[in-house]
């Protein structure tokens, strides 16, 4: 058999070449005090990293990412699973519901951002709806307050990605053997019991896949906080994420060295996550 190296070479050159080159370059730049243009950047060793560990905005961004991940993942799992179960029941016009839940997935976050900015502005439609529901006292400048800016970002994210969660759970539930469900019914299991004892364990593989996707997504978060806050990351950096902070440092403020150091930290977190998930996935398969 001939060698397969020429076959895999294009993928390696494009991917490993470009990405590893970038990572190498980033590691080097992360040791500089540099604005990206000046011909003789100053070598400062690990100083960028030590400053990052004392940077409250960095820790804020880490905290936001963790909260964001936990909340959006939990909400999407609950809502997505509920939708999937409901649409597997005897309901009419199922296709229309599916389309409505899934359309947000295909729309670019960048295009929806102005819509959400308008919606959550002080005279926006969100407050109008609250008033109609008799909850007018809850109306507030959602995006302009530290306490509510991040929840709005999470709400938008849940709106955008529930479609994926739903589609995956819907497919997973289709694979459950219907005779198992019938048997459980005959034994007198109710709806909640069936969800808890049959459906939830059967879709655990999907849940793990979604947890992985969610973690990667949380680390990548950029478009929504950047655009919805209008480039300022909210009041007091309330919607600052690692991605937006790197962008701000590198492009807006010309602290290229600092931005590179932040990138390296983000990269390390992402790789640790990736490896941890791989290992836990392996363990699970071995138990199976």
């Amino acid at each position: 058999m001939s060698s397969g190296l020429p076959w895999i070479l294009p993928a390696l050159v494009l991917c490993v070449g470009l990405i590893y080159y970038c990572i190498g370059d980033t590691s080097y730049i992360s040791t500089l005090n540099w604005d990206g243009i000046s011909p003789n950047p100053q070598h400062i060793g690990a100083q960028n990293f030590t400053s990052i560990f004392h940077d409250p905005i960095f820790w804020g961004a880490v905290r936001h990412t963790v909260i964001f991940y936990v909340v959006t993942f939990t909400a999407q799992t609950a809502i997505g699973l509920l939708f999937a179960v409901l649409l597997h029941s005897r309901v009419r016009l199922a296709v229309i519901y599916k389309v409505i839940i899934f359309i947000p997935v295909v729309l670019a976050p960048a295009i929806m951002a102005p819509v959400f900015r308008a919606m959550f502005s002080p005279t926006g439609q969100f407050d109008t709806v609250l008033q109609h529901l008799g909850l007018g006292f809850l109306a507030q400048p959602w995006l302009a307050q530290t306490t509510t800016a991040l929840p709005v970002i999470m709400l938008i994210t849940v709106w955008e990605w529930t479609g994926v969660t739903f589609v995956l759970y819907y497919a997973a539930i289709s694979q459950i053997d219907s005779s198992v469900l019938e048997a459980a019914r005959l034994d007198g299991a109710g709806n909640t019991r069936i969800i808890r004892s049959i459906i939830w364990p059967s879709v655990s593989g999907t849940t793990i896949a979604l947890a992985t996707l969610g973690a990667i997504g949380a680390l990548k978060t950029f478009d929504v906080p950047y655009l919805v806050s209008g480039g300022s990351m909210g009041p007091n950096d309330a919607t600052q994420f690692l991605g937006t902070y790197i962008y701000q440092m590198t492009i807006t403020l010309d602290h290229v060295g600092y931005g590179a150091a932040l990138s390296i930290i983000l990269l390390v977190i992402a790789v640790i996550f990736g490896v941890a998930l791989q290992i836990s996935g392996r363990k699970r398969r071995m138990i199976d």
């Binding site: 690692l242 962008y247 590198t250 492009i251 290229v256 990138s263 992402a270």
Partner: peptide, 18 residues
Amino acid sequence: LLACLTLPEVVLLTPLFI
């Protein structure tokens, strides 16, 4: 190749920018 799976695109920003 797989190690690049979890990579956020923003990590490529600095070197690509430069």
